[in-house]
């Protein structure tokens, strides 16, 4: 292999090693240590004393996760919220992607731009804007009260509803783009063939478009579901104290309790939980590529 090819392949590997694998090993290591009042606030796994090298692995952090049901509840609730948000995202994004893919070439790019445009602003600011929209004397409540539809503000901020709004809003482009790419590739003559054989438009959609866009739906769902499970900013800013998500628990362990070992264990378990959908996705993808 030439030097050029080596470096082309080497650069991404180096990147992944430095910024993914090394931090992961560090977190993995911390998860087996004990909390300590020191800098950094955990004990070393390897100690040298009396001419003995001792490796002490503390599994207590992991067993602790199962003694306090806060963690299990947080995991389950994260998966549930991320799952529901992914489904809503899919339902909202599909028609958007479909319309963009079917639009004339000239308007297509403009429409795509509209989907991507919000991401040009800071994520934090966009979520903060939703606080202003959803709060009791915010945009929606004020408007509804001005119309006279309600006379008491509806509590939307600091509910799970607000978290769904936030996730669907923030992750929509990640669902729209893979769906769009997939629907763009859909051969129009297949739709014509289905119509030609007597299928009315809704049936053409159900029997041809939908099954052929499965790969796009799966890819989009993964791109939304996986980061949503560990989402911190959205549940923290929009979900209030009621909403339990593992990202928030993680933050509290790290920064409020300063318990880095337990926090690391929480992170490792989350990663293991996400490995399941990721590997399923990977298996599906390789199968698609093979056929």
């Amino acid at each position: 292999m030439s030097w050029g090819r080596r470096s082309v392949i080497g650069v991404p590997y180096l990147w992944l090693t430095l910024f993914f694998f090394v931090p992961f090993v560090i977190v993995f290591k911390i998860s087996f240590s004990e909390m300590d009042y020191a800098i950094p606030p955990y004990t070393n796994l390897l100690t040298w004393a009396d001419e003995q090298l001792t490796l002490s692995l503390n599994f207590g952090n992991y067993t602790y996760l199962f003694t306090d049901d806060l963690y299990i509840r947080a995991y389950l609730s994260s998966i549930r919220i991320a799952g529901i948000a992914t489904i809503i995202c899919l339902l909202v994004a599909y028609p958007i992607a479909y319309v963009i893919a079917r639009a004339p070439a000239a308007t297509r790019n403009a429409l795509l731009m509209l989907v991507i445009l919000p991401s040009w602003t800071s994520f934090l600011i966009r979520i903060y804007a939703w606080v202003g929209i959803l709060k009791n004397n915010g945009l929606i409540n004020n408007f509804l009260m001005w119309l006279g539809i309600i006379d008491q503000p509806i509590a939307m901020l600091n509910t799970e509803f607000a978290v769904y709004v936030g996730i669907v809003y923030a992750y929509l482009p990640f669902m729209v783009l893979p769906l769009y790419t997939n629907l763009m590739k859909l051969d129009n003559s297949l739709l014509e063939a289905a119509a030609d054989l007597g299928a009315p438009p809704w049936k053409v959609f159900m029997s041809v478009t939908l099954p052929l866009s499965k790969a796009g739906m799966i890819a989009g769902s993964m791109l939304v579901f996986i980061p949503s499970v560990g989402e911190f900013i959205i549940p923290d800013m929009l979900g209030g104290a009621e909403t339990l998500m593992i990202g928030k628990v993680l933050w509290q362990e790290f920064f409020n309790n300063r318990d880095w070992p337990v926090a690391s264990a929480v992170a490792i378990v989350m990663l293991l939980l996400l490995l399941l959908p990721i590997s399923l996705f990977h298996r599906y993808q390789t199968r698609e590529l093979e056929s």
């Binding site: 051969d187 003559s189 063939a193 119509a195 054989l197």
Partner: peptide
């Protein structure tokens, strides 16, 4: 979809 006509497409358009 309501015409008594069927077409064989150039690309065959098999599903």
């Amino acid at each position: 979809h309501k015409r008594p006509v069927n077409m064989m497409f150039q690309s065959y358009a098999l599903f």
